[in-house]
Structures are given as C-alpha cells and as structure tokens.
Design a binder for these strands. Structure first.
Lengths: 173, 173
DNA sequence: TAACCTAGTGACGCAGGTGTAGTTACGACG
DNA sequence: CGTCGTAACTACACCTGCGTCACTAGGTTA
C-alpha cells in the first residue's frame, strides 16, 4: 500500500461503496451515458474508471431517485438538467422534477409556489442533503478506503455556501 | 342507448379515456392487484368491470405518478397507503412519498417540515389537484360518454371541503 | 335463435435494468 | 519475466410492464 496522494478521484468499486450501488449499475450507467467518469474513462479490461467528487454526488442523487421509486429514464432527464444548470455550487437548492420539466427551487417559498401552482406530481431532491450525505459516507468508508482521497473535493468547507436573496430559477424542457 | 341513470360507475374502456391510460394497462393493473374495480369485477369474457368514482381518482393518481417518472412498484405502495389512510374525503391534503414511507401532509408548513427534515427524495401528489383534474376530464368526455354517469360521485360540491386546523398526519411503512 | 357489438382473455413478444459468471487485460511485485 | 490481483468486458438470463392480436363469451337486438 503506497503512500496516498498521487491519485486523484475515486475508482469504480470504491464509488459503488460510497454511493451504495452495485458495480453492474455503475458499469451500465457509464455505457448507456447516464454518467461517465469525468476524470478517466475505461479503455479496456485492465484499465480503470476515475470519478470526480461531483460525479459521486451526482451518482448519489441518482441512487436516491431510484430509492424513492423514480425511473432511470426520469433520472436521466433530471441529471441532464442538473449538469446543465448547476455549476460547481452543488447543494445550492432543491432540484424539483415535474412530469415534463425540471426546476431549481432555491428556498421553501419557491417550492411551495411550484407545488401549489402545478397540478401534477413533483419529485423534490434537497441537494444540500445529498452533499452532506456523500460527505458522511466518504468519511465512514475513509478508514477502509485509505487510498484515492480526491483532490477534486472542493475543500471541506467551501460547499457550505448559504443561498442568498437571489431569485434566479433555472428551468428545462 | 337506454336512458342513463340505471347504471352506476364507469366501465373499463370509459375509465381508460377519463384517466388517460390504455386498456391494456387497466387490465394489467386489475390482474396484478394494483387496483381492481370496486363495484364489479370481471367474471369472464362477456362481463364488464365497473369502477367507482374513487377508483377513477386513484387510477388518475397512478397515472400522474407514472407520468412524473415514478415506478409502478412505488405507485403500488403509495396506493396501498392511500386506500388505508384516506377515507371518502379525497382531495384533503398532499400525498408525500419518501424512499420507504408515505405520509399525508395537510398544509404547506407540514410539507416544508418534511422536505427540510428528511434528506431523501420526496414525491408530492397534490390530491385536490387530481380530484379537480378528474372532474374536468369527466366533464370533457361527458358529451361523448353519454351513458353511465355515476351515482358513486359524491355530488358535484361535497368534494370541496377545506382542511381545517386539524393536525392529524397519517404515516405508513 | 341467429347475428352483432362490446369487453375481457390468453399467448406472444419486446425493451429496459440488473444479477451472475466466466473471461480478459493492465499494472505491480517478486 | 512470470505470476497475481484487480477491474473492466462479454454473454446469458430473468423479471416487470406493457403493445399487439387473435379469440371468446355475455347481452342485446332482429
């Protein structure tokens, strides 16, 4: 076991443990384009995928969507939207999925407006919760998964930026 | 076409139009126990299923869940909960589905508490919206679907009961 | 009673998502 | 340079949720 530090990002099997999915799923999601490792793709049997910290968060979002009974298809659309409209400030708001579109709601009021306005079903993903969740899971496994502590992680504090009085609201589809 | 009034409830193909699903789906959902017609079950090729008004509303809920990308599996659990905990006062609250349990949230505050408290994904179904929705759809098709105007319908007004200051909150699983 | 319309039934098939298992190949170490 | 561990690849199979289509059987009307 060589000294950690040279590696960046997380490798496939490790990601599975952190996120709580099977390797088969991770593989399938890569091949079908749901989410491919942004640091290093697989290039044959002997190689290995390398996922960034953000990748892990996104994967965890997908996992939670699945757990709550959302289709992979719907998750795909949600992730597409997420990638387009969320920058590096993960945990900034709530991701709200309607029947045909996705929205970012910054605070509770916006959320209530959305829920009151539309007559359909909404799937709500509290992003900050997911980010905290991922952090905990990494720490818990940290003892075992000694190597590959990511430099892609945006430093332990910076994720905590609270939402200001901005009223921006992205929308897609 | 005999004078309407002798019949009660809605027959299969009609329900499909109102709810917006295919006959195959309705059939499948009956056979697999998701929702069977509460007024009359099918008893052979020549017979016909008879659905109550509440059945139609529930079916519409399922349909909207599907549209928003929720699995049939999850919908099954949701409907089980719905049947157990919602009486005849449909449209009373919001049906909130978490990863492992279902909840009825009466007002916006309860909703926000739920969303803030849990760190998972939530699927929110505004029941009053669904009831209105069904009503409109029946009216729209009413001109064409002349027959079988249900007596199971709880009279055009009585559904509108507003939620009082009660703080009951059912929960399952 | 024969002809029809309507609605439920059965069999078949397909696609997506995933488990299982065996195979292959990179990279490290002796 | 051979061996080994690990991770990715391939093939197969299964299960759910339907679409399609041909078939069957009440009920009604002629």
């Amino acid at each position: 076991m060589p000294g950690a530090g040279s590696e960046q990002g997380y490798r496939g099997p490790q990601v599975c443990k952190i996120v709580g999915i099977t390797y088969r799923q991770l593989d399938h999601w890569d091949r079908t384009g749901l989410l491919r490792p942004s640091l290093a793709a697989a290039r044959g049997s002997g190689t290995q995928r390398l996922y960034s910290y953000k990748d892990v968060v996104v994967l965890r979002i997908i996992k939670q969507l699945l757990d709550s009974g959302v289709t992979l298809q719907r998750a795909r659309k949600a992730i597409d939207f997420f990638r387009d409209s969320v920058g590096d400030d993960l945990a900034s708001a709530n991701l709200v999925l309607g029947a045909s579109d996705s929205v970012l709601a910054r605070d509770g009021d916006e959320l209530l407006d959305l829920l009151r306005g539309g007559q359909g079903v909404f799937n709500v993903v509290p992003l900050s919760g997911v980010v905290d969740d991922v952090r905990h899971r990494i720490v818990e496994l940290g003892a075992e998964a000694h190597e590959a502590t990511a430099t892609a992680e945006p430093a332990p504090e910076s994720t905590r930026q609270q939402h200001g009085p901005t009223d921006r609201q992205a929308r897609a589809r």
